[in-house]
Amino acid sequence: MENIKKTEIAEVYSSKNIAPDIYDIELISPEIASVSLPGQFVEIYPDNGVNILPRPISICEINKERGSLRIVFQKVGAGTTLFSRLKEKDTVRLMGPCGNGYPLSLCKDKHTLLVGGGIGVPPLLEAAKNIEGKKTIVLGYRTSPFLCEEFKKYGDVHVCTDDGSVGFHGNTVAFLEEKNIKGDIILSCGPKIMLKFLSEFAEKNNIDCYVSMEERMACGIGACVGCVVQVYENGEKTYKKVCKDGPVFNSKEVVWQ
């Protein structure tokens, strides 16, 4: 993984608002796209003089032919509000690819459960595309689903909403429990509370489970030690960096609070 991260000025290929506060942007970034893997993320710089830190945004799709990365993100703060206004042909500065992706080689010839919650759904799309074997895809949202149709090419898709407006009424873990769906391996991304329950579900059913974690981040390359998550290492509690050691961790490694 050494010496492949780059900074690059990317041009916006397309930009869409696909659900309330959810934006879908394709960025022409050939150098970064050529070495990106499913589950990795990019740091995007606001470059406005006020918001000095880059924003970590997961990679939703990688198009090596076009040399582009697709990002799907939620407008939550100053940085993502700026990015939500990006239009075709605008440019933005990126750094990446950051972190380690999903362990796709472990999914070969297995039954993989892909479980996403809210804005944790996007990085699973590129993963789903690249996994060989049986896939069950469970996507949870508060109220407004997005990207679900695109997952249908890659496996059985089940949608859950907290308010029951679409699909199963309840969260993704409740769905797995109720339908008694079990697989051999879980790849997931979503709110910490969902990942925690999913981790318990996996442990109970003896399924390998990988979770993509999030934490407030600065450098994105492992130098500042800002974005840590507490893990067990040799039986002791310690901190690992989301940006460099993660963002994907084995759920058994994480100290869930």
Binding site: G49, V50, N51, I52, L53, A78, E215, R216, M217, A218, C224, V225, G226, C227, V228, V229, Q230, T238, Y239
Partner: peptide, 17 residues
């Protein structure tokens, strides 16, 4: 070991660590 997270916050024209 360092401190528990969150360890980082952005502020106007700067950051806290």
């Amino acid at each position: 070991q360092g401190n528990p997270p969150p360890r980082i916050a952005e502020v106007y024209g700067g950051m806290l660590n």
